[in-house]
Each structure stands twice: as C-alpha cells, then as structure tokens.
Nucleic acid binder design. Sequence first.
DNA 1: GTAAGGATTGGC
DNA 2: CCAATCCTTACT
Length: 172
Amino acid sequence: MRLTREFFERDVLQVAPDMVGKILVRKSIGIHRHLITEVEAYSGIEDQASHARFGRTTRNSIMFARGGLVYVYLIYGMYWMLNVVTGPENHPQAILIRGLQGINGPGKLTKALGIDRTFYGEDLSTSGRIWIENGLEKPDFIQTPRFGIAYAGEPWKSKPWRYIRVQRPEIS
DNA sequence: GTAAGGATTGGC
DNA sequence: CCAATCCTTACT
C-alpha cells in the first residue's frame, strides 16, 4: 500500500527510521520494487550538514515545501541524489536514500532506477512513476553518524542520523 | 563575473 | 590516493 502524505509530514527524525524496510517503487517500462536499507536525515536550517543551512535557494527550495515530495540534486557533476522531503511547509527537512537491497550507494541507486532532475518536486502520494509502499513490519536498524559531512562541524557531524537496516538472525 | 568545492564512485 | 564533471554558492 502506498504511503500517504501524512506519513511524510511528520518530523524528519520520526520519518527517517520508519523509512528503513519500506519499499521504493519505480514504474517506467515495467514496475520494480526495492527494499530501502539505508537513509540519512537532514533537519532544518540549523543543521550545518543540510543544504538548507544557507536558507532558501534555487536548488533547495523544494525542501521548504510540505513532506512527501522528491528532492533531487546533482553531486560531483555526475551523480543524482534521491531525497524525500518531510515535515510541514517552511520547515526544511529531507531524507537522503543511500541504499536499497542489492544496490549500495546513493549515486548507484539513482542510476539503476533512472532517476534524474525531472523527478525534482515529484509528489510521492500521487506520482505514477515513483512512490513508496509499506514493507517490513518492524525491521531492525542501527544508527551511525552521517557520511561525508565532516565540514559541518560539531554537533552536526556527530548526530546519529544515518539509519541502516540490519538483518535479525533467523530463528530456527 | 569568477572561483571553489561538493550528502560519490571507481580506478590506479 | 585521486580524477571525473558540472552545478551551486560565496565572494569580488
């Protein structure tokens, strides 16, 4: 079942752990479903690791919209990063999707799914080509500091806002 | 207008 | 370790 906008309109630190174990659905020629295994949360203009730290700009304006929309941007001139906007309007937050089952790395997953700038602002609650569905009931996950944002300084670079799925040992 | 560097990846 | 590659932001 597709997640509604209400799911994404909560605070990013509530939504991010709930994203682990959900299913990212991409429909183009055929339909593909991918288990979300790793995400990172970026929260507010005060978060010095967030693109919203300079206030509203052309690139990050979608982060200031309500939750449930897609934020896509180009990094290092070659990789598209897929993010989901969360929270209420004018409260810039986003979740970077860093990994899917079988696809590790935020740049690799957008390439594999064919996601580019045309997805900027796409509405996950109504889009016919990308959305997120309920998945695992209660997946286990661990939290670690976010990757590649050392420039943000403390306390931001140490916030445990990276969420990674871990598989519970099978019970036999 | 100009310059610096990035929420990455893969190859040496 | 470091280049690829181009867009965004900061600064003159």
